[in-house]
Structures are given as C-alpha cells and as structure tokens.
Design a protein around this nucleic acid. Sequence first.
DNA 1: GCAGCGAAAATATCT
DNA 2: TTTTCGCTGC
Length: 673
Amino acid sequence: MKKFVLKKEEPRKRPEDYSIPYADLLNKQQLDAVFHEKGPALVVAGAGTGKTRTLVHRVARLVESGVKPSNILLLTFTRRAAKEMLNRASNILDERCKQVQGGTFHFYCSLLLHRHAEIIGYPSNFTIIDTADALEVIQFVRTELKLNKKKKRFPNKNTLLNIISTCINKHLDLRVVLQEQYPQFLEQEEKIQQVGLAYQEYKEKNYVMDFDDLLIKTRQLLTQHEDIRIKVASQNQFVMVDEFQDTNKLQAELTELFSSVHGNVMAVGDDAQSIYSFRGADHQNIMDFPERFEGTKLIKLEENYRSTPQILNVANNLLKQASFKFDKQLYSEIKDGELPALVQSSSEHDQSRFITQAVLQLREQEMELNEMAVLFRNGRDSFDLEVELNRKNIPFVKYGGQKFTEAAHIKDVLAHIRVLVNPMDTIAWNRVLMLLDGIGPKTAQDLFEWIRLAKNPYRLDLSDTTSQSYIDQLKVLSKLLVALKENDHSVAKVVELVVDYYRDFCKDRYDDYPKRLKDLEAFVNVSESFTSLPKMLEELALDPITATAVDTEQKTKEEAPLILSTIHSAKGLEWKHVFIIQCLDGIIPSAYSVEDEEQLDEELRLLYVAATRAKDMLYFSYPVLAQSAYGDYFTQPSRFLKDMNNDLVEEWKLVEEEQQQQIEEGNQQQLTD
DNA sequence: GCAGCGAAAATATCT
DNA sequence: TTTTCGCTGC
C-alpha cells in the first residue's frame, strides 16, 4: 500500500490569506475586530465608525475561513438589521452568508423554544402574544382577583404589565421596582404579586408566551437542561451581538449561555447610543462585559466615516450636555459641509410644508428619496407631514409608531387564525366569540370551557344543550372553522375566507369601516408572502408590519420612498439628509422625563442618535406652537438646542412666497427710485 | 349577563 | 381627542 501524506492545513489567520482585500477595506481597529480569533471581545464603536461594516466583514471572513455558516450566530436589534447585514455579507463573499443564524434575541429564543417546547411543558404550536393581548389577560385576571372591593386605588392594566415586565427585564424584586418607580402602590404589593402569578398561570394554561417569556423560558431551558445548553452552545461556535448597550440583564445572561461552550463571543456597542432603558436595557452591560467574560479583548473604533465635521460638532455638543459625562469626541476626515440648520416654522403644518418642499427640491437635484429621512420622537409626530406628503404624491415608508397588526380589525381577523393554529388560545377564542351578538365575557368563558373538552374544538355543535340567541351565529362560525381546518388552503386563501366572514362584523362595529375594509384587503395581499399559518403568526408577532407600510407598498414599486421613522427605529441607519421634526421641549425631551436626570439623559442620547444618522446635512425643525393630544401646548424649542450658537447651527427662516415677492418688489422700487 | 350611555381619566419609544 | 370605567335598563 502506498502512503500519501496530507499536509497539515494551515489555518488562515492573516488578511493576505483571503480573497477579499480586507486590509484595503478596513482600518487597523476594524481589522483587529474582523480577525479576532478565539475568546471574548468587546468592540466599543462610536456612531458612524463602521460598526456594521465591521460585523459584516467579520461574518464574511469567518465563512471564508471555513466556519460553517450555521455555526455563526449574529444577534441584532431588529430582524431588519440582521437581514441587511447578512445580505451585505453575501454581496461581498457569497450566498453562504445567508445561512448564518441571525435575528433578534426574541427571534432566536422563539426558535429554540419551538424546537424544545415539550421539555418545558409547552406544545410546539404555542402562540406568541403581543402587548395588546397581554393587557387583555392582565385585565381579565385583574377583575377576577378583585374580591375585596376596597376603595384603594389599584394600578390599571398598563401599569401592572409595566411593573411585571420591569421585574423580569431588570431582574429585580417586585418590592424594589415598586419602591423606585411606583411608591404609591407599595401597600398593594401582595395583590400585585398575585396578579403577576395569575398572569403567569393563565399564559401557561393557554400555551401562550409574551415577549418576556421568550427570554425567560429560554434561560430556564438552558440553565435547567445541561444537555440542551451544551447542544445549543456547541452549535454556536461564534456569537456576535450588535447594539450591546441596548441589551438588558437577561439578554446578557443569554449571551453567556449561548456562547458557553466555545466562549467566542463578540459584543459591539456604544454607551452613548443607549436609548432603550424603558425596556430594561442597561448600558452597564457594556462596562460589565470584561468582568462577565474573562480575558476580553477590547477594541475601540473611533474615527467617524459618516458625517461632516459640522454635523459631528453638533453631535459632540449634545453629548457634552449630558449630566453623566461621556469620554467621547467624534472626529472625521470628511470634507466640510454646510452648517446644520435650525428651522423655525409658525405652525406644525408649515413645518410639513417646509419638509415636503425641501424634499422635492432635493429630488430635483437628483437625490433619491430614500437618501433622505425624517425622524421624530413619537409615532404621531409625523401625522401632519404624512397628509402633506400624500397630497404631493411623494412616496414614503414609515418605521415605528402604530403597528398594522395592532389595529382592532386586524386583530379580529388574526384571532380566527390563532384559534386554528392553537385551539387552546383563550384570548383568541374570546375575541372570536365576543364578536357574536349576545356573547359577552361570561358566555365566552363558558363556551371556551366547552371547547377545551370537545373532541373537535371547531365543531361548535351545542344545539341540544342551549337555545340561546347566538346559536345560529355559532353555527356559521363553526362551519367556517371546520372548513378551514379540513381543507388545505394556502395562507392567503385562509385569510381571504376569514376576511369574507368578518366583513359584516366590521361594518357593524366601526363607523370608519371603509378604511378598515381596505386594510383587510391589504392584509390578504400581505399574507401571500407567508408559507404557513404558524409561521405567519410568529413573524407578525416578532416583526410587526407598520401601519403605513401596507398601503405604501404599491407606490414604492415605482420609486424608492422617502423614509419616515421614529428615532428609536432609525438606530444603526444613515442617510444623506436628515430632518428631525418637532424638536420641542416636552416632545424631545418628553415632558414625562424632565423630572428625572437619568431619563433626561436618555432623551438627550436619543437626539444624539438622531443627529448622528446624517451624512451630509442635518435639519432641526420645530414649530413655534404645537398642541399635544389633549390640551397642553409646547412653545419652546428643545432645551438641548438652546445653547447652540451660530458657529454650530445656522438659523433658517421660512418666508412665504408673497412676502418674498413684496420684499423683492420693494427692493426693485428702491433701485428705481 | 349583555349592551349602551355618559362621565372621567389619560405617557411614549419596541421585541 | 380618545379610551376606560361604572351605571342602568333590558
């Protein structure tokens, strides 16, 4: 026999060993991060310093070096971000990069939980409930528990859910949360605890999970089942977490668990951009990372490649105003641009006219609409602008704000789908049943008890036991559900049939039904892109469509649309021209955060994040007078803009055409005189 | 137990 | 302005 000696395979370690010219594409620090091999690393990256670029190239490099894509886990803040990064990675390398596991913590946890559901006592078809559903459940247990009708004020469902969720996400005891945030309810601690437990029990009994459960049950799964932890963590040879400043304590723990076999974990973040503390995010996670992961290599990205020095000056000025100081100065080698504009308008509507016309002007100068963005603090801050944009036929997409799936009529339709997927989902059944005349909370509850025990939960054949007024309606409902269950329709067909059934209810219940019916048609269209009903429910829960996205879809095919976004949803993105509207004191900073130094700082960072999205030009815009939802008036520009002098920003004045003509005529007059 | 009416309250950012 | 609570008549 002849021997053929195979040479030892040289691991690729240096940029020269690769087909992609990493060394030409990246700076020294970025290269360090991309070529970081084993062990934990923390990349502290200021705004615009090429954080995404670094992650994208690291994914490409790992794949190119022979790591199986499925052994890489990339956790990002939104699913959109993960998709974009993996797309970019496959553009520089190849399609393999799309096989990388990517998504939000919630998404990845959902994946693991569906895979191992039975171990924690759930069926694999469990439903994920959104905040509105969660509130309904809270309301239900709240009324159930209200045995002694003492006249003491008891927190309402919103507050209760907030308290419960804060305990979980910040990993705190109920008492601590109450002491810090709701001292007025300290006396009720016991009852609040009861609500919390009843809520938990309700969810478990009905096989549903809320967003927090996805995280907490995953931790439970991995800490209580050593074998599964090892299996999961073995697969994750390389773990990367983006936007680490906006992870909470629980997510930091999960990061540790996910990477607990190989220990190759890279976190990327910027403490100056932490804007999610309301959700339990703790930018201390960044500071604590080296302690949590021993032997952490620290890499700092400091040079900004995005914005002009003028924009960075403004950003640096903002950061300087923080009461908790940052040791941070952004700088860039980009050539000078215009001074950021400070635009005062006389009314919100004039502000909208300004934005619309400025956008049109830029478009005439050959700038694509999607290279510009309008950012704002609250979803509703763009309502007036949206009307104006529609009038002028400017296509736009809006990120953030009211979700399409949160609208009552869409939830009604979705509830029917949910009972088809998970017949134990009481919340959905309640919604479905209470649409019928004569069925209220109590009857719905009784009916569900019957459904729970029924052989076929969709065959609502109660004619021999009841002679109620709703019996005929129940038959119609039952016929629909049985038919949908028995036939193997496409997702869109199912949605269409449910919508057909629901249309009359919609007309009865809502005065503005024409608009809602249009939404329903749009929903049928949207549903075509889903492969199965469970998948659709999961996707819609974890990545809900924004309200305007649906009806703008048509228009956007012709021209890339203008971007409208809440500042929170603009995280990590960039545009040539950025307009920040409604820069009013009381809006940003929000009137509810001015009392608290920490919260005020977060509002400041929010404006910082908004400002650093701009590459070429930045506009701060505010109307002189703005009315809030019920009565209050905001009349002052944001306090954060107050001490920006003329070196930093340029004040723009809006002048009406007629006025301008008069001025010009006046000048003419003077000349001829 | 349901539905409808009038009075009273009311935080927003997102997975 | 919109949502939520509590009361009343059926």
